[in-house]
């Protein structure tokens, strides 16, 4: 057996165990998001044992790779709810387009007002969409992909932890509006948090997330063309 295979397997097993544990905690205290519960013990263990992240991530990429197939699998709730959603798809696309433009402009303008350097401003622009799309748009705009990755994940965690509460505060109660808002603002991490709440929310959110990804990659490509 290959020697590098064992630590990779170990980090997959450790990650999966922490995830299982975080799910148990989440079952007891609903407000406790699994993503936070799973990451804290792993970060603590890596820090205490002085294991570099790159070492852990050799196994980690085995899990990260499955984000591709999982994105593809989103077609199933989209299809299953397709009949219910069919009549609203043009309106939903309009809502998502408005949200995507708002996200790109507000992120960039806020960073610009705070005198951030241009590459940092560009890194903030694609932060609302799923990681692979965001990285590409960031590269096209000559941003710093690492900053974009960090922002994408933090936005997703923010959406998964406080998105629903925040929408409740703003008196947004419609399941379709909630799905659209979470999918557009916090991509896969937000959508994943809705799957356990309601199938309709998750389906609309999957639609919104996919549409936001497509819109943002097109808008990003056009913007980079204009800036050339």
């Amino acid at each position: 057996m290959n020697r590098s295979f064992i630590p990779a397997l170990l980090s997959v097993m450790a990650t999966t165990s922490c995830y299982a544990l975080a799910l148990q905690l989440h079952r007891k205290w609903r407000a406790f998001p699994p993503i936070v519960g799973a990451c804290i013990p792993i970060m603590a263990a890596l820090w205490l044992l002085r294991v570099p992240y790159a070492e852990y991530n050799r196994g980690g990429t085995l899990l990260t790779w499955w984000l591709g197939p999982a994105t593809v699998a989103l077609a199933v709730p989209m299809y299953r709810n397709g009949l219910a959603l069919r009549g609203m798809l043009p309106r939903l696309s309009l809502v998502v387009l408005a949200g995507s433009i708002t996200g790109m402009v507000s992120a960039g303008v806020t960073a610009w007002l705070l005198h951030a350097p241009l590459p940092v401003i560009m890194s903030t622009v694609p932060k609302s969409v799923t990681t692979p799309i965001a990285i590409e748009v960031s590269r096209q705009l000559r941003g710093i992909p690492q900053i974009t990755i960090a922002m994408v994940i933090l936005t997703g965690v923010l959406g998964a932890t406080c998105g629903t509460y925040f929408l409740k505060l703003a008196r947004i109660r419609n399941d379709r509006a909630i799905g659209a808002a979470i999918g557009t603002s916090s991509h896969g991490i937000g959508t994943a948090s809705l799957i356990r709440q309601s199938e309709l929310r998750a389906a609309v959110s999957s639609w919104a997330m996919a549409a936001a990804g497509v819109f943002t990659s097109i808008l990003g490509a056009s913007l980079s063309f204009l800036l050339r």
Binding site: G99, T102, T124, I147, I178, A180, A181, S186, A208
Partner: peptide, 22 residues
Amino acid sequence: AICLSLVVSFVAVLLVTGLLGQ
């Protein structure tokens, strides 16, 4: 800059999409 832009943009997207969606 990163934190503020993240929070401002997150809230803006949530509100615009949610209210328009509603």
